[in-house]
């Protein structure tokens, strides 16, 4: 190896390691201090203890926020997957002009800045409740709708490319053999879309879990909290220590899920390349 390439390789490793440290040091500090009795992160470590984990399960507000986060995330991403997949199928069969219009409208929430989207949902509710005097109000249900609306375009973006790859002859063959269009769609097309639908669901779920602005704006009048709004509100005053335990659990779950997912994916890719 040439001397210059050794130097450049060393430089590359140095940059990567520094950035990696910057990314993971904050997470590592929280994980370490989740097992401590310290009053604040970075303070005197105190005793090695699991007390923050038991405190976590006594904190009703935080448990409630976790429950809300998961409930809103799961329901909205199931809805977004259904809505997005059917929309992708519909858009796929549209003529070029109408397809362009629908595609453009699905981009609105993606390119728009979140605070304006959030204010849109807020204005809509005020309009329905106060101007039209309808018996509706901000609620868990409304948050689920809002999350569904913002994540559906991402499901469409995931499912549409897969639809374009499908062999149209399979669907035609199924109909030629006497299956109704609906039955052909369910038995022939949907199974081929399953992978893309799962990716779309995962994306929608992550988006929902990560959301802060839309939930915050549309929930503070009724006091429904998610993990994001809980941490935000508490960080402004005094954050309870058990949040370290919750963070540690979430970091670990995310890491395990992603590593398993990638191992499975790599295995599948290898199997496919063998065939």
């Amino acid at each position: 190896m040439k001397k210059s390439s050794v130097v450049s390789l060393a430089l590359k490793w140095t940059i990567l390691i520094i950035v990696m440290l910057a990314i993971y040091l904050p997470l590592a500090v929280i994980i370490i201090y989740s097992f401590s009795s310290a009053k604040s992160v970075g303070g005197n470590f105190g005793n090695l203890t699991l007390s923050l984990y038991s405190k976590l399960f006594e904190d009703a507000e935080l448990l409630d926020a976790t429950k809300n986060t998961l409930l809103i995330g799961l329901v909205s991403s199931v809805l977004a997957t259904l809505l997005g997949t059917t929309a992708a199928i519909g858009i796929h069969y549209m003529r070029r002009k109408s397809r362009a219009i629908v595609d453009a409208s699905s981009q609105i929430t993606i390119v728009n800045t979140e605070i304006v989207t959030a204010m849109g949902f807020y204005s809509l509710m005020l309009f329905l409740r106060d101007t039209l005097q309808l018996p509706v109000n901000f609620s868990m249900f409304y948050l689920i709708i809002a999350h569904t609306v913002i994540s559906t375009p991402y499901v469409i973006l995931t499912v549409s490319p897969r639809l374009k790859q499908l062999n149209p002859n399979l669907l035609e063959a199924s109909m030629d053999l006497g299956a109704s269009p609906m039955r052909s769609l369910i038995t022939v097309m949907l199974p081929q879309l399953a992978g893309a639908m799962i990716s779309g669901f995962a994306l929608a779920f992550t988006l929902s879990l990560d959301d802060f602005v839309i939930t915050h704006v549309n929930s503070y009048s009724v006091g429904i909290g998610t993990i994001s709004t809980y941490v935000y509100t508490k960080m402004k005053h005094n954050i309870p220590n058990q949040i370290r335990a919750l963070s540690t659990i979430i970091f670990t779950v995310v890491l395990i899920v992603l590593v398993i997912y990638n191992i499975v994916k790599n295995k599948k890719a290898k199997q496919q390349s063998l065939h």
């Binding site: 997470l27 994001s228 935000y232 995310v254």
Partner: peptide, 13 residues
């Protein structure tokens, strides 16, 4: 990872 938790971690560091 939930972005608010990442901000909390970074802020602590």
């Amino acid at each position: 990872i939930n972005f608010m938790l990442r901000i909390f971690a970074l802020n602590s560091l």
